[in-house]
Design a protein around this nucleic acid. Structure first.
Lengths: 119, 119
DNA sequence: CCTGTACTTTACGATCTAGTTAATTAACCG
DNA sequence: CGGTTAATTAACTAGATCGTAAAGTACAGG
């Protein structure tokens, strides 16, 4: 884990920790959008939306293009993949606990069948 | 997305946004550990470590057991899986951009071969 | 050139965070 | 009991975050 990678994860996770920003990402999953449009669903001033977008941009999760007075936002796939990769390193833990659950259920099933046979 | 799910993601992502806490999770991936042991790698007072653990616990990412004066911490798989699932919803974006890259490379290769044939 | 639209910047306040030190709790051990 | 070890709680500070309102920037179009 390099310094730069850690910094990226700091910013990405911090950006994702806000429900408004996650909702903005969900909206951007449907396609590009401008700031006013992105702010529409929220009871929040435009400057507040603008700040959220800045946080997402600083984390690399979105990029912006400039066309006349409109600033279009677009979802960036690569950083989200990096987040997924980080979390994915822990995948064996939930796989393992799933296996343990399966073992338990298998065990339970066998004991139940045995009980049935004894009666 | 229910209120409770949003709250969980708020806490989980906020907890993951700190490098010390991610390092603690990485250590816990190797097995249970007590507070002092977990704090060892960091130039940080014990109360600070204790606070980080409280944040991780509140996010559900770890659980704690109590044995004499030791409080052992353990990684919880289920919430990490929930985080992975959330990020996974965006997977098609990086898959798609990967496909576009492949298309581009395939195209480049064919044009290169064609150039070769012309000479 | 003036007006409207789409945003950003600035300045501010409230609340949260990450760290500190000092004091406290709790349990074991001689 | 008294001392040591393990960890938490309390009180505090510095700095970040999330929101607001008001002012400023940039561009398009009559």
């Amino acid at each position: 884990m390099t310094e730069a990678e850690a910094d990226f994860l700091d910013r990405a996770f911090a950006a994702l920790a806000d429900p408004t920003r996650r909702a903005i990402l969900a909206r951007l999953a449907l396609g590009e959008a401008g700031v006013t449009e992105l702010g529409e669903p929220f009871q929040m001033s435009l400057p507040a939306v603008s700040k959220h977008l800045k946080v997402l941009e600083r984390a690399g999760l979105i990029t912006r293009s400039h066309q006349a007075q409109w600033r279009y936002c677009r979802l960036e796939p690569a950083p989200l993949k990096k987040v997924a990769d980080w979390v994915g390193d822990y995948q064996r833990f939930w796989d393992e606990s799933y296996e343990r659950l399966e073992d338990y259920l298998e065990d339970l099933k066998q004991r139940t069948e045995q009980q049935g046979a004894e009666q």
